[in-house]
């Protein structure tokens, strides 16, 4: 852009940096203190002594299991979303079947529907399908309400594939399935990332569906685990903060190892 340094923007960017970092710093600083120190010191004071006790407390209260459950929900949600959305996007771009056209319109409308508003019929449906209190119960509606965005992102990128490529493959004698596997899938790689990351984060962070559709301790996901910590560790803010930070650890690792990929994937939601 311009070569002259932009002082106004620079100053504001530092303000925002403080806004982002201050809460994070407080959480980190509290999570490494003992409860008594946290209560006796001021909130902004540097930890008097560091402790790993909170970490031990959180880990020994089943947080690992919650993360595993969340991971299962996330993986299955992403896989199922892609398995449904990829062929659907292909059909929307290439098919002349009326179903493809009609579905596309429904998906467009579906973008505007707040998933949370449907929780009561979803609850009814899930209990009638005998899926209540299973991880499947979380995956199904999560995938359903993620589908519109997934299909549209994938279709958007497929639209850019030039017709010549399809024709070239056809000349080689490929049927629609072969075109799908050999042409569509490789070309969609960038938007598959986007869909995967977006769906994955949604599933990872989901709260309402697990809250209503599951109950037993063995099936608790990370977000509900955190909520539960509030009553279990209610007295102990440092332990709660440890749980909060720990819940972000897997995503943080991903962020550190593959930041570009994660950021590019998320940005893909906005289209080109």
């Amino acid at each position: 852009m311009t070569r002259r340094p932009n002082w106004v923007a620079g100053g504001l960017s530092c303000v925002w940096l403080a806004v982002v970092l201050l809460p994070l710093w407080l959480m980190v600083s509290w999570s490494v203190q003992l409860r008594q120190d946290y209560l006796d010191q001021g909130p902004f004071d540097f930890p008097r002594a560091f402790t790993a006790k909170n970490l031990g407390d959180v880990l020994s209260s089943g947080f690992g299991d919650y993360l595993v459950n969340t991971a299962i929900v996330t993986v299955f949600s992403v896989v199922l979303t892609l398995a449904l959305a990829l062929p659907a996007a292909y059909a929307i771009v290439r098919s002349r079947a009326w179903l493809a056209t009609a579905s596309f319109r429904v998906f467009l409308l579906g973008l505007a529907i707040p998933a949370q508003a449907t929780i009561i019929p979803v609850y009814w449906l899930i209990t009638r399908l005998e899926l209540y209190d299973t991880l499947t119960a979380i995956v199904l509606p999560t995938v359903a309400f993620g589908l519109p965005l997934a299909v549209l992102v994938l279709a958007g990128s497929l639209r850019d594939v030039s017709r010549d490529l399809y024709e070239a493959m056809t000349l080689d004698g490929a049927g629609p399935f072969l075109v799908f596997v050999k042409l569509v899938l490789p070309l969609c790689r960038a938007s598959v990332t986007t869909v995967g990351i977006y769906t994955g984060l949604n599933a990872w962070n989901g709260f309402l569906f697990p809250l209503i559709l599951t109950q037993s301790d063995e099936l608790r996901v990370m977000t509900l685990g955190l909520w539960n910590f509030q009553s279990e560790f209610g007295v102990n803010t440092p332990a709660l903060m440890t749980g909060v930070l720990l819940s972000a650890l897997p995503v943080l690792v991903l962020y550190i190892l593959a930041r570009r990929w994660l950021v590019a994937g998320l940005a893909g939601v906005g289209g080109k």
Binding site: P87, A88, Y90, I92, R94, L99, P141, L147, P176, F180
Partner: peptide, 19 residues
């Protein structure tokens, strides 16, 4: 050759039932 309804059917059905 163009993909048929079969390609969109699973997604459409799934979306119809759960959304």
């Amino acid at each position: 050759p163009r993909p048929g309804s079969l390609y969109i059917l699973p997604a459409a059905l799934f979306f119809a039932v759960f959304a």
